[in-house]
Write a protein that binds this DNA or RNA. Structure first.
Length: 262
DNA sequence: TCTGCATGAAAAA
DNA sequence: TTTTCCTGCAGAG
């Protein structure tokens, strides 16, 4: 489930529950060297794109959920660790379990800086400069759909947001970055900011506007939440054309071939 | 029980 | 461009 909004949500949740407290850190699965931070006080938790940084003094746990990583937490006593729990936190405020991350490692401040330095602007961080992303896009021949997923260009956008944003702006996913004009980019960037903030609030990726969904009251159903993502062969919500899917940069890309024609 | 699949990214080639 | 790693779940048999 992890695109940038998931990590910012996780950071907020961990801040509220654990910052300022000593944490008993362990690795029931044994694949994380928990001794390096066990018993230390958690100073801060921050998210940059899809990366999470949990600072215990000058030892910083770097977490990247990858495709499968998940975090669960609760109050009271922690449950018996079922399955592969890479990192477990227990404090007086409750517990938190991390499973299946691509990265879970202790870094120094300079190593953290190096990771942040290679990321593009994060739409969920205050003061992020979308223009920095456009500087890269306008110099690239690569397809827009690939650039949006590239964390050096924009930090935090993943496979759902990229397809959905391209649809919302009726852009051909294969349009070369250099063919995009600045005005179009400004629209995309502000839309990404809006959508990801909504994702941060709700914990879900909902990109459809109410008028484009079937008229229903109540919560957005799963099948209504997206325009194109995972809708291969289903009719486009705007013009009814079957949605197309093609693998681009090792990930499935979805689009409407008529709404998003070149 | 087995298979395939998933909102990711790095290393190898 | 392909391979590899991370884990859990749904659906098929």
């Amino acid at each position: 489930m992890p695109e940038g909004h998931t990590l910012h949500r996780l950071a907020r949740s961990q801040r509220r529950q654990f910052v300022g407290l000593p944490i008993a850190v362990s690795s029931p699965q044994g694949r994380f060297d928990a001794m390096l931070v066990d018993g230390r006080v958690l100073d801060s938790v921050t998210a940059h794109g899809k990366h999470l940084f949990e600072a215990f003094g000058d030892r910083i746990v770097h977490v990247h959920l990858g495709l499968f990583g998940k975090y669960s937490s609760g109050t009271g006593d922690p449950p018996e660790p079922l399955g592969a729990v890479r990192m477990r936190w227990v404090a007086e405020s409750g517990w938190g379990d991390l499973r299946g991350p691509t990265a879970c490692e202790v870094l120094s401040p300079s190593e953290v800086d190096a990771i942040i330095a290679r990321l593009g602007p994060d739409p969920l961080r205050a003061g992020s400069d979308g223009g920095r992303a456009f500087d890269r896009i306008r110099r690239s021949r690569a397809p827009l759909a690939g650039l949006l997923m590239d964390q050096r260009v924009v930090a935090g956008v993943g496979n759902v947001y990229r397809s959905e944003v391209l649809f919302r702006h009726r852009l051909d996913p294969y349009l070369p970055g250099r063919a995009l004009d600045a005005t179009a980019w400004d629209g995309i960037w502000s839309d990404v900011v809006t959508l990801m903030r909504a994702g941060l609030r709700s914990g879900r990726i909902i990109t459809t506007d109410p008028t484009d969904r079937s008229r229903r009251t109540g919560p957005v159903r799963g099948e209504d939440a997206h325009y194109v993502y995972r809708r291969t062969g289903l009719p486009c919500r705007i013009d009814g054309t079957p949605i197309t899917m093609q693998v681009l940069a090792a990930r499935k890309l979805y689009w409407c071939p008529t709404c998003q024609a070149a």
